[in-house]
């Protein structure tokens, strides 16, 4: 039997524009998801440890194939105050989603068919990044949204004290600079698509801060810590002409 109750349903919203459906790997230690985005330029890794759920019970390994498009609709209409519970019995073909509004006591139940998902599993190597910079998540979202109104990609440059997001396009150029207190092993410059950063920054509500791990010419890591876990977004850089 599997039963998990989750209070940060906003996590679903953060990944719905990147992934249509995914296997949720349920273990006694917690729930994990690792999947390439639809255009195969990013990888989303989510880990939610058992301790972050009240309650959490999983007595055998279970892979639930879940449509995030459907899950998003369910969570969206439940509102912010609702908790989401996932239940499965010995039949792996279906699972239950239970939405509970604590204020009104309203309970909505769904019986959902597990999807068979053809998912490629990528090995993510351990990387020593040249810079690991933590900034307020709301500032990061503001910068990404603002620059993306007019421009398409952003060059991230980091120095000892500042991280600079600069961008140029047909209409001209723009940049945003933020102070940080992180250690750098050397200067970094990498260019990535703003559209994806805007998507990643939808996880802003999950955490006050976001950590950017950067090295030239390797995927950038954008990480949001959540209670008893994390949401990580790896994004392949743009290289050369």
């Amino acid at each position: 039997l599997f039963h998990a109750r989750f209070e940060q349903a906003g996590l679903v919203d953060a990944i719905k524009d990147l992934i249509q459906d995914s296997d949720f790997h349920c273990r006694d230690s917690g729930i994990a998801l690792r999947n390439m985005d639809n255009s195969q330029v990013a990888v989303v890794v989510i880990l939610l440890e058992a301790g972050g759920f009240l309650p959490y019970h999983c007595d055998r390994r279970l892979n639930l194939g879940i449509s995030l498009t459907s899950l998003t609709k369910i969570v969206h209409y439940a509102g912010d105050e609702a908790t989401l519970a996932l239940k499965a019995n010995d039949n792996p073909d279906t699972f239950n989603l239970v939405l509970e509004c604590l204020q009104t006591g309203c309970i909505i139940k769904y019986d959902i068919k597990s999807r068979d998902i053809d998912q490629e599993h990528l090995e993510i190597p351990k990387t020593d990044y040249a810079a690991t910079i933590t900034i307020p998540s709301a500032e990061f979202q503001r910068i990404c949204r603002n620059l993306s109104q007019l421009l398409e990609s952003v060059a991230n440059e980091a120095s000892e004290e500042r991280i600079k997001f600069s961008s140029s396009g047909d209409i001209g150029s723009g940049s945003a600079t933020l102070r940080h207190n992180s250690d750098l092993t050397g200067p970094i410059a990498l260019t990535i698509s703003l559209k994806y950063l805007v998507n990643f920054s939808k996880a802003t509500a999950l955490s006050y801060s976001v950590t950017l791990s950067l090295s030239s010419e390797v995927p950038q890591l954008v990480e949001y810590k959540v209670e008893s876990g994390f949401a990580r977004f790896y994004f392949a850089p743009q290289i050369g002409e």
Partner: peptide, 14 residues
């Protein structure tokens, strides 16, 4: 504009 790389060119399948 640079060329967008695929993530699989950095992360190999298991």
């Amino acid at each position: 504009q640079g060329k967008q790389r695929m993530i699989s060119s950095f992360f190999a399948p298991k």
